[in-house]
Design a protein around this nucleic acid. Structure first.
Length: 371
DNA sequence: AACACGGGGGC
DNA sequence: GCCCCAGTGTT
């Protein structure tokens, strides 16, 4: 029973691989605000929600402000939706803020203000999907729950040289299955939080999307993609669709004191609950805006603003109008509230404006100065 | 299975 | 300009 001489190096028993990675993590892990030997489960939940599809460095200042504003689930539960959204302004994917807020209210009402350790109860909280369930259970409670995020998917795809796209159904199934299996090996099972964070940290610091630093990798000798020299070609990605173009026109109605007439978007959909100057989407948006607000009189068309989201490319025509202090109703355009807002308040990062809304306000303020 | 949902940082 | 990030919820 001898292995053929030219076969890949024999794979050591899993515990050796796992221990190598755990040792690396112990030596090289970053000092992050939500990391602690005895983590606060609520802090873990907040950080994990903020980190969904968002980089660590982006999250840091938001996390600090959030924990300062609302140090406990009970404190967060008592906050208003507007306050919560304002604190999230600029972070994107605003439904995460709504979910965190709802989760806090459930925790306060049903769990005595403490995160439930129970798998089903935790997974039932809004915003807690498979990844976050694994993160909170393993990191906050030390429970042997696997997780797969973008980093782990990349690391494990390379480790096994998997040709399945990590985002495909089959690929995800294989990755979660492997993550589960790894979690059951002795060193991982004894340190679930460190193990999961080690996989993610490796993906963030060493096993990066481009130019992975295999020479610094603690588990390179067991990596199938590295052995085959294809680490930088994995994971296989699914072709992505181009962003959809959106034509829009926005009304910048400016009062004598410089304030702008703004509306709050509906609670569902893009920029849910956020404020912005009133706008219309569609190829005929400019004429619709014209008709809706009867812009026959004096108005100024400002330079087009291009605002790119992941799946949308906005081409916005801002129309500046001097108000005679009339305040047209915005409900017909789908807004659920309306008020005059000073440009300074709108552009401040705690205002509950979308980035596009803030850009429009800034454009209005700049143009208004020249008049 | 596909889509909706933001924004920013690195190259 | 492109990639992709500590993903989840809806259809």
């Amino acid at each position: 029973m001898t292995a053929p001489r030219d076969s890949p190096p024999p794979t050591p028993p899993p515990p050796a691989r796992a221990q190598a990675l755990l040792d690396w993590f112990a030596a090289w892990q970053r000092d992050l605000p939500w990391r602690s030997a005895q983590p606060d489960p609520y802090a873990v939940l907040v950080s994990e929600l903020m980190l969904q599809q968002t980089r660590v460095d982006t999250v840091k200042p938001y996390f600090a402000r959030w924990m300062s504003n609302w140090p406990t689930p009970t404190a967060l539960a008592a906050a208003s939706t507007d306050e919560v959204l304002a604190a999230w302004t600029g972070l994107g994917y605003y439904n995460r803020a709504r979910n965190l807020h709802k989760a806090a209210r459930i925790i306060a009402a049903d769990h005595n203000g403490a995160l439930p350790r129970d798998r089903a109860a935790l997974g039932a909280l809004p915003g807690v999907g498979p990844y976050t369930l694994g993160a909170v259970r393993s990191i906050a409670f030390g429970q042997p729950e696997p997780l797969v995020d973008g980093n782990v998917g990349r690391v494990l795809s390379r480790w096994t040289a998997s040709r399945l796209p990590a985002t495909s159904t089959a690929g995800k199934k294989a990755l979660w299955s492997l993550a589960q299996e790894l979690m059951e090996t002795p060193p991982a099972r004894s340190a679930p939080g460190a193990w999961n964070q080690a996989l993610m940290e490796l993906g963030a610091l060493v096993c990066t999307p481009k130019k992975p630093a295999c020479s610094s990798c603690p588990v390179a000798e067991w990596c199938a993609a590295h052995a085959a020299g294809i680490a930088d070609q994995l994971p296989v990605r699914k072709p992505k669709k181009p962003p959809k173009p959106v034509i829009a026109a926005y009304l910048l109605l400016m009062r004598d004191d410089g304030k702008l007439w703004c509306g709050q978007r509906a609670a569902k959909g893009r920029w849910a609950g956020l404020w912005e100057p009133p706008g219309v989407e569609g190829p005929d948006s400019a004429s619709v805006l014209q008709a809706t607000f009867d812009l026959g009189g004096e108005h100024e068309v400002l330079p087009t603003i291009v605002h790119v989201l992941t799946h949308r490319r906005y081409e916005v025509t801002p129309v500046l109008v001097r108000s005679d202090n009339a305040a047209p109703p915005l409900a017909p355009l789908g807004y659920v509230a309306e008020r005059w807002i000073s440009p300074a308040a709108a552009v401040a990062s705690t205002s509950g404006f979308s980035r596009l809304g803030a850009r429009l306000v800034a454009a209005a303020a700049a143009a208004g100065q020249d008049l």
